[in-house]
Simulated assay, not measured.
Amino acid sequence: MIPAARQAVSSAGALSTGTGYASCHHGEILQGVFRDAGGRRCAGLVTLPMSGLGSHAEFVRDPSTPPEELSVFPENRTKACRAAALAVEECARRRREAPCGGQLRLTGDIPVGLGMGSSTSDVIAVVRAVADSYRLRLLPDTIARLAVRAELACDPLMLDGRPVLFAQREGRVLEVLGPALPAVVVVGCALGGGAPVDTLSLPVRVHDDEDVRAYERLRALLRRAVAAGDAALLGEVASASAWRGQKLLRHAEFDVLTDIAKGIGAVGVQIAHSGAVAGVLFDPAFPGIGPRVRACARALESSGIPATRTFTTFPTTKEFLHGSAHRGIDRQAGSDTP
């Protein structure tokens, strides 16, 4: 692998290496249909950020090659390859240069197919790496525009964790909800044995005016939760959104998951709208939060729901997360999934 330090091969047609990184998320807190500032309906979502896992990209730009000579490793990362070509076109235009080819390498540790934004993470890391090779830093709205073109819909990972209502099919922010989500502890798990969800096979649900009003009410509640740092209200919104999502996803373990959450004193549950990843949400201010978290992981396991990892939406010490609940079980990243 070519090191991150830039490498000049010759004064004419020099190779230039750029690197980029993007984190993942843990599914959605809220997902549905909302109205934008102009009153138009559009699909939108609010993701639950999760640090520690992500995609790394390295792009070696070669001005001596035509733009169609663009290789990617692993070879099955087709969305990432499209993103690289689009980013080269964008950056070359800004530098007033001709687009060229190059070599792209991706590495990462995000589980694929669970609804954690692995493909968007790849795409954003690639766009940042290409821009870095041109000595450019693209703004988030530009990255979002390129990401939507590369994969038709994207998650708001280019915003680095800020809670926003994001129109995933249009690549634009509908509302900035605040500086940070309320503090919660999340016990992650995988429904359906962790099998990928083929969203293309799901029936298309038509949302009526009552659906839109319901989602707008949840949007208002989430806005209040963020402003007040209210973990309980955040859990209420996430649970309501997860329940509405079951009209399409129909996870067999949903009732078991919610029963465990209620019985152990959690504030709610959240589920990815395009995968099997889910989380039980706890208010860290509750007495005995450590034993609650560990008891939750045990209850999930005994019910046949694999516990994956425990994390927080706030900075904390390692000791806070250590224990039997912090399994740290992750799958190797693989190819793009529908």
Rank of each mutant, 00 (worst) to 15 (best):
Q7K: 03
S10N: 12
S16Q: 13
T19H: 10
C24W: 00
C24G: 05
H25Y: 08
G32E: 10
F34I: 02
V46F: 04
P49G: 12
A57K: 02
F59K: 03
T65F: 01
P67Y: 01
N76P: 14
R77A: 15
C81Y: 08
R93F: 09
A98H: 13
Q103Y: 07
L104C: 02
G108P: 03
I110C: 00
G113C: 05
G117T: 04
S121H: 00
V123S: 06
I124F: 01
A125V: 00
A129Q: 01
A129E: 09
V130F: 07
R135I: 02
L138K: 11
A144Q: 08
R145E: 14
A150G: 08
E151P: 07
C154H: 01
C154I: 02
L159F: 13
G161C: 03
L165A: 09
L165Y: 04
Q168M: 12
E170I: 08
G171F: 10
V173Q: 11
L191W: 02
P196L: 00
P203A: 06
D209E: 15
E210G: 03
L218Q: 11
R219W: 12
A220T: 10
A225S: 11
D230K: 02
D230R: 04
A231V: 10
A231L: 08
E236T: 14
A238N: 01
A240V: 05
G245D: 05
Q246L: 01
Q246S: 10
D255K: 09
V256Y: 05
L257K: 03
I264Y: 00
V267N: 09
G268F: 07
G268W: 06
I271D: 07
L281I: 08
F286H: 13
G290H: 14
A295K: 06
E301A: 15
I305E: 05
F311T: 04
P315V: 06
T316P: 01
T317M: 03
F320G: 12
H322K: 15
G328A: 12
R331N: 07
Q332P: 06
S335N: 14
D336L: 07
T337K: 13
P338R: 14
